[in-house]
Design a protein around this nucleic acid. Structure first.
Lengths: 187, 187
DNA sequence: ACCTGAACACCGTTCAAGT
DNA sequence: ACCTGAACACCGTTCAAGT
């Protein structure tokens, strides 16, 4: 059964998450797929094209996942709770996002990160406006919420052998939710 | 004038911060230093030894800088303020830390990150105890504070062209400080 | 002590040749 | 349409030879 462009891209995304952007290399990927480098160059002009396709795939997945995880929740406060606790849960799986953050010197990666970040910040700004935060305070609230989201993910990636458990984990996530919850009437 | 081991390590740290761990490569480094690869292999057994030396250099610098920036501050609340605002200021310079986070699959890098993270968490736990946070709540508070610190740095790295200014920046940093300040008598 | 320069293995890229 | 296999350039590593 012949390989498709999608087969190469899927495998590249797996490698990106586990070993970083530099590990998205033609020859090792060819070995993983049991093909030759010549096969790769039938589907892609060069490595950069593969990287671009991999970034697009990740972007579509990340966007879709956010929508189905967060946007389906009606109540804005519950959305914030899902966001903070989701940051912790998500970071256990792969770290494509962390890999991308460190490859930020690569122009296509940088462009992707800026797009994603702005989309998330805009989403959060609308959310804080829904929570009756004044218009001039919504952007800073959104920025802090996204910072907390990023930080929770990163901390888990940086030190995966020292994770909180039980009551300590619950308190940590409660504090995280409190830190991004605006003042106002509790539900 | 002959090159020293330190010359290679200093240059490697510059490249690590600007272009990531993969860019810490022998031949490009030799070009930057106007030497040959053979010269490199007089000072180091291999690339791994250079990376190890670079990680050590960064660890010493990061530790020393934290001590002189934070530990000299007597009041715990002011320490927290310095920490949160410092996260924003620091991320503008280089992103060695971000580069290291993404190279976390590399065993020496992972070991380094775990050491640094635990030292910071312990420092923060003592700080919250000084602020009369109950013993069982100090670790979660420390963990959230470090998450906020990491997140602020990462957000600035991920989207450097969309930074807050003026009042928006001030509000953002105020919210960040509030988010990690424990309940208690205000100063 | 410190460095050069040639050598070889590995990965990116090309391309003629196969099915 | 899809792939192989050989070729060549680049970087990691070695090492004999230079000063």
């Amino acid at each position: 059964v012949p390989l498709s462009r999608g087969d190469w891209t899927e495998e590249a995304l797996v490698v990106l998450a586990s070993d970083g952007l530099a590990a998205v290399a033609v020859e090792p990927l060819a070995r993983r797929l049991d093909a030759t480098k010549g096969s790769f160059y039938w589907h892609f002009a060069n490595r950069a094209e593969l990287v671009a396709a991999t970034l697009e795939l990740w972007e579509r997945r990340a966007t879709a996942e956010t929508i189905e995880r967060i946007e389906v929740i009606a109540d804005p406060r519950e959305r914030l709770t899902a966001l903070a606790t989701g940051a912790y849960t998500r970071a256990s799986r792969g770290n494509a996002y962390a890999a991308l953050l460190a490859a930020a010197s690569d122009p296509p990666v940088r462009a992707l990160l800026e797009r994603v970040t702005r989309t998330q910040l805009e989403f959060l700004e609308r959310l804080y406006l829904d929570l009756d935060v004044p218009a001039d305070r919504a952007p800073p609230h959104a920025r802090l919420a996204y910072s907390v989201y990023l930080g929770i993910s990163q901390l888990r990636i940086a030190d995966p052998d020292n994770e909180p458990e039980g009551r300590e984990l619950l308190t940590y996530l409660e504090l995280a939710v409190d830190s991004i919850m605006p003042p106002g009437p509790a539900t």
